[in-house]
């Protein structure tokens, strides 16, 4: 399936969501509540077979956070990016780790550095920083007056 075709078939699966060609991958923007059902359909639909989550990350835009999921199909070798916006004050989203086991570690890292709370994650705790760390350092409003020299 070519990229155009891929975009069309995903658009027809999710008529409410917007999908556009990004710099490298097609980008699908969805509501955060529909995340699990979207991932589930993309994974189980035999013509798409997105069976591999090769990156999961988060972006802090100050006004809101954006979760970014990079999917790959090991059978058809096509990719897709899924984006969804979260509230900056109390970011919360369903965990993807029951569909993609690899999300488990990614989500612990995102929790550690961005403070996104993943619902139904088996053991959401810090992974890189020490357990008693205060705050989430990749948030734009993070401040550490002792270690940070501001420019």
């Amino acid at each position: 399936m070519g990229t155009e075709e891929l975009i069309q078939s995903i658009q027809s699966m999710f008529p409410d969501a917007s999908i556009n060609m990004g710099n490298n991958f097609p980008e699908l923007v969805i509501e955060k509540d529909s995340l699990l059902s979207v991932l589930n359909q993309l994974k189980s639909e035999p013509t798409l077979a997105f069976d591999y989550l090769f990156c999961e990350t988060c972006v802090d835009w100050k006004s809101h956070l954006t979760m970014v999921y990079h999917l790959d199909s090991t059978r058809f070798r096509h990719n897709l990016v899924i984006k969804t916006n979260l509230d900056a004050q109390a970011p919360e989203i369903e965990s993807a780790c029951h569909l993609y086991r690899t999300a488990e570690l990614h989500e612990r890292e995102i929790f550690d550095l961005f403070g996104v709370k993943f619902l139904n994650h088996p053991h959401l705790r810090r992974i890189l920083l020490t357990d008693d760390w205060k705050g989430h350092p990749l948030r734009k409003d993070y401040d550490d007056p002792i270690n940070m020299i501001k420019l």
Partner: peptide, 10 residues
């Protein structure tokens, strides 16, 4: 990493 880092020893 001198400026604006929380993690690096200067």
């Amino acid at each position: 990493f001198f400026y604006n880092t929380y993690s690096v020893v200067k």
